[in-house]
Design a protein around this nucleic acid. Structure first.
Length: 418
RNA sequence: GCGGGCGUAGCUUAGCUGGCUUAAAGCGCCACCCUGUCACGGUGGAGACCGCCGGUUCGAAUCCGGUCGCCCGCG
């Protein structure tokens, strides 16, 4: 189990200096994941708005759920009782869970400073310059773990605690095929010294996570979960390389590249982050999924991704087509009787839904207040199904292109996104 | 014909015992945004000479008269 077979590592391209792209198969208890591939985000256990039928229509290859959100929303017992997340959700393909480490950032510094996974260049210059905001951070980090308390932001006074051990325990109860070590995601706003301190703590947490979930291959435990360690180090070359070497030396089943960074640093940060990892194990780039970035990462040798982009943008009315994004809520589509994408084979397009119809399905109009809302949700559901299929096809094309050594050519076909 | 009600952004309305209104909101429209989901979303923006004419007043969307249009009763 959890064997990773690299099928095509594009030796020719590598020797020509054109990149490290590779294809492979990752064997899990719920099927083989062809790589490169993308996990569709299902934070609370299920992809937002999709019912069981929609799942079979969208048919994602794998999904990723979130330890922190399932924990805080008190779903763990329910999932465990059902016999794990596959039975609980009805999705029988590979599932991952994130450890909650990202929420240490997204609900902490990310929220306080209003920055996201990929920080924009015009943001606040540094955390050090805004120490007055320290007291507003609802996330308290210590060597032992992390305490979340949202009362500083006006929430209730309840505390939620996660440690490497408890995160792993929860992830075992959830029972996904691939789980992640507990870490702290840092941002480009953090200084070298803080990032170093945080990274070293994340390394200690990695060892603790590993101890709490011994590798499946070498253990007699019945737990059939692959554990991925996470490389941190922010935007700093020395730290990234160090983290890569350290995490890469541990007996993880695969690796995640974590952290929030600036838009222009993607390729560099990835190169440094991958420098110390063993070739024969899968590498997952956490949270990245804009098409431009996917190509950058695949060329660096990333095997797996997860990202909210396909589903969140679908809910916000952004429809992906090969010739570019369609902001389907705009007025220009009110009389557009064309198919959403005539080259698309998704369930929505196969059923002949036009742009005008999909736009109408995003409208809150149409009858009673609740009817309007349901109608709006219909559009969002259809868009979600379409976008999932779009990204699924994108990755199929990427795998084929790597095998045919035509990745550069494929990237050019997506010029609208580059 | 008589009595009553209503006419404010593209739509639905708030304001209507006059100055806090350079007229407000929701929807719609436009632009931008979304990267290990606090998000069925966020941030901006355009858009109204308050039906029309006249009067009272220092000052009227708000009061008065007339007029046009629509609605409801009674004939």
């Amino acid at each position: 189990m959890f064997e990773f077979k690299i099928k095509n590592n594009n030796q020719k391209a590598r020797s020509a200096g054109l990149g490290q792209a590779r294809t492979g198969f990752f064997d899990t208890p719920h099927g083989i994941i062809k790589t490169p591939n993308l996990a569709i985000v299902a934070t609370h256990g299920k992809i937002k708005l999709l019912n069981k039928t929609d799942y079979s229509r969208a048919n994602p290859d794998l999904t990723i759920s979130n330890t922190f959100h399932l924990f805080v929303n008190d779903k763990i017992k329910e999932i465990k009782k059902a016999g794990g997340i596959h039975k609980w959700s009805g999705f029988r393909k590979p599932i991952m869970t994130d450890s909650g480490g990202f929420q240490v950032f997204s609900l902490g510094w990310g929220k306080v400073f209003g920055i996201g996974k990929v920080a924009r260049s015009d943001g606040i210059s540094s955390v050090a310059g805004h120490l007055n905001l320290l007291s507003k951070n609802p996330v308290k980090i210590s060597e032992n773990g992390v305490i979340f308390n949202f009362s500083v932001l006006g929430g209730n006074n309840k505390e939620y605690k996660l440690t490497p051990e408890s995160s792993i325990k929860i992830q075992q109860d959830i029972g996904a095929d691939i789980i992640f070590a507990f870490d702290e995601c840092t941002s480009p706003l953090h200084s070298h010294s803080y990032t170093k301190k945080s990274m070293e703590r994340t390394h200690r947490w990695a060892i603790r996570s590993l101890k709490a979930n011994p590798p499946a291959g070498g253990s007699k435990l019945k737990i059939q979960q692959a554990l991925f360690g996470i490389v941190q180090g922010g935007i700093y070359e020395d730290l990234r390389k160090k983290s890569s070497k350290f995490i890469g030396s541990l007996s993880f089943d695969g690796f995640g590249i974590g952290g929030s960074f600036g838009e222009k640093q993607m390729a560099d940060v990835l190169r440094w982050s991958l420098s110390g990892l063993p070739e024969e194990k899968p590498r997952h780039l956490l949270g990245i999924g804009k098409i431009k970035d996917i190509f950058i990462a695949v060329k660096q040798g990333i095997d797996l991704f997860d990202c909210v982009v396909p589903t969140r943008e679908a809910r916000h009315g952004t429809i992906y087509t090969k010739s570019g994004k369609l902001a389907i809520k705009k007025g220009i589509f009110a009389k557009d009787g064309k198919l959403i994408d005539r080259n698309c084979d998704c369930w929505v397009c196969r059923n002949g839904i036009t742009r005008r119809e999909l736009r109408e399905d995003f409208s809150a109009k149409g009858g009673s207040a609740s009817g309007g809302k349901n109608k709006k949700i219909l559009g969002q559901r259809l868009a979600t199904i379409h976008n999932i299929n779009f990204f699924k096809n994108l990755f199929t094309e990427i795998r084929e292109a790597i095998a045919d050594n035509k990745l550069e050519k494929l990237e050019k076909e997506y010029y609208n996104y580059i």
